[in-house]
Design a protein around this nucleic acid. Structure first.
Lengths: 225, 225
DNA sequence: AGGAAGTTTGGAACAATGTTCCAATCATGT
DNA sequence: ACATGATTGGAACATTGTTCCAAACTTCCT
């Protein structure tokens, strides 16, 4: 069943299939053509094989997506330099995941849909450890990580939705302009705040806003000390 | 095209189809049998009609899900009593959505997947107005609502995932126990924090934790004043 | 070297689903 | 009554994830 169960890893044909190669190909399809383009047929074509062969290495589509997500998130997490200051470290960790989602929006879909992927564990642990360092009382740490993580996951879903919605390579500024215009047309009586926000919607930076949210939660956490 | 374009709304057959009746039936299926049970065939059977007839009232499955979500969230929002204290009002608004998602987990999937449903606007506006009342400077209000909303949406996704994962009517305590056990088996070297959390995982209350997160963000927002 | 046993491949076949199409039915205004 | 447009029911279609299986390939044993 498990290809790794081979007693020794010898050279098979140079183009042998493997879970890694499949995940790699899937990632390429997802990145270049979007979530809807990933089908087993497309994957089989790109790998010059049949769908049955793929299923020998991968349980099902969920398994494949989980593996691809795990791969991206893990890589984002390993590239982190260790930051001495706990708050800075938390910012660095969450930003790493944010950037990974920004580069691969389908990861956002995956994380928002199945939050408890193995990939999340290191993030969870990393944040938790810094909270300890920050002096957050044990009772409150769980709540604090959850707050940070859920914020991150919520944004992940939003990012993925935007990527799905906006035709590839559309100008982002243009898109924001469109949304702002739609919001500006809402009833001023019922939606004064939404209209106010619509005004600052163009020229706003996602990454900056993400960080602002993290800082907000960190400020809240600081009051727990 | 639009059934509402009828010049007058007269009595047709008593069992006439309508978007409302379709949404209602869909909601029942989603609530009792879960997300995967909602197919146009199941819906047609329940409504004693054909799929073509449904498509006359509904654009597609997305439209149907959006309408159902909107219905649930709107109802949750209208039932709100107006709270004078801004922080209490924000807690009430977000809790209303949380409870709606708790009662209808598929709403969580929908909100996490397509965050900018019309249904979210009133939530957005409601929170924004209280932030104004709280004295949060205009520049920071957008970030603050986004933080609260994303936290909410992240949790929505998590809730929906749990509902999908856990077989209907499984004991929740039992489920938490299972997760806790799995976490407790992780490598103590690499995951001390996750293991620590695992210990407090049984006997923890989702709603309480949700509120703790909201309070954390509110505390952070309070530092902006 | 040769064959047996297990592994891996490729693609056909299947079941389920969202969606489209169209002929039949119904309601309404003239 | 009849004509017109609204509405219905269900058959047909395209696409997808998944299963199945015979062929091809590796490895191991003698």
């Amino acid at each position: 069943m498990d290809p790794m169960a081979r007693t020794e890893r010898s050279e098979r044909r140079a183009d042998a299939l493997s879970k890694e190669r499949i995940v790699e190909a899937a990632t390429e399809i997802l990145d270049t053509d979007g979530e809807s383009a990933l089908t087993f047929r497309a994957l089989a074509t790109r790998l010059a094989t049949g769908s049955g062969a793929i299923y020998w290495h991968v349980d099902n589509k969920n398994d494949l997506l989980a593996a691809a997500t795990d791969h991206v998130v893990s890589r984002a997490m390993t590239g982190l330099v260790d930051d001495a200051e706990p708050q800075a470290a938390i910012r660095a960790i969450t930003l790493a995941v944010f950037d990974a989602i920004d580069a691969h929006p389908w990861v956002g879909t995956q994380l928002a849909r199945e939050p408890w992927q193995p990939a999340i564990l290191p993030v969870f642990e990393g944040i938790g450890a810094r909270l300890d360092a920050l002096g957050v009382p044990e009772r409150a740490r769980f709540d604090a990580v959850t707050a940070l993580l859920n914020y991150l996951l919520g944004l992940a879903g939003q990012h993925a939705a935007a990527a799905r919605l906006v035709p590839r390579d559309t100008n982002r500024a243009e898109f924001l302009e469109t949304v702002a215009q739609r919001w500006a047309q809402l009833d001023p009586e019922r939606y004064p705040f939404v209209r106010e926000v619509a005004a600052q919607l163009p020229g706003h930076d996602d990454r900056e806003q993400f960080l602002a949210g993290i800082n907000l939660i960190l400020a809240g956490i600081a009051t727990l000390r």
